[in-house]
Amino acid sequence: MLFIYTYRGEHRISSLIANKTNQKVTVHINNEQNRNCSSSRGMSVFAVEVPARTKMVCQHILPISDKQDWTYNCVETIPTCT
């Protein structure tokens, strides 16, 4: 099982990925639909590899401008092997 926890504060959004499985998992993160947001990862699209039975901070999101509305719309996907 994989859990994604998201903390939404007034001035910051943080996400954490908890991998409860016995194998590593790679999660693809896509922030391209965010508006007026800056990710701590420095990229809008990236992958996070989470080792088995661990938790990892995925990213912190901050508004670029405090004077404008900001929209967080992150899409997380796990590629499947076929």
Rank of each mutant, 00 (worst) to 15 (best):
T26Y: 02
V45C: 09
K67V: 12
V48A: 12
L62Y: 14
I78R: 04
N30H: 05
H60F: 07
Q68G: 02
I61D: 00
V45D: 01
Q68I: 03
V57T: 10
V25Y: 00
I4A: 07
S44N: 12
T71W: 10
N31H: 10
C58V: 07
T26F: 03
H28C: 13
S44Y: 02
G9T: 08
S38E: 10
T54W: 01
Y72F: 15
G42T: 07
P79V: 08
M43G: 02
I78Y: 02
N34H: 04
S40C: 07
I78K: 04
C58F: 01
P63H: 04
I4Q: 03
E10F: 12
I13L: 11
H11C: 08
M1K: 06
R12G: 04
K24F: 06
K24D: 12
I17S: 02
S15C: 12
Y5F: 14
V48P: 00
R12F: 07
N31G: 03
I29Q: 00
W70I: 06
S65D: 15
E76P: 01
E76D: 06
D69M: 06
N30A: 08
T77G: 05
N73A: 14
L2W: 04
T80N: 06
P51D: 14
T26G: 01
I4F: 05
V75L: 11
I78A: 03
N73I: 08
I64D: 06
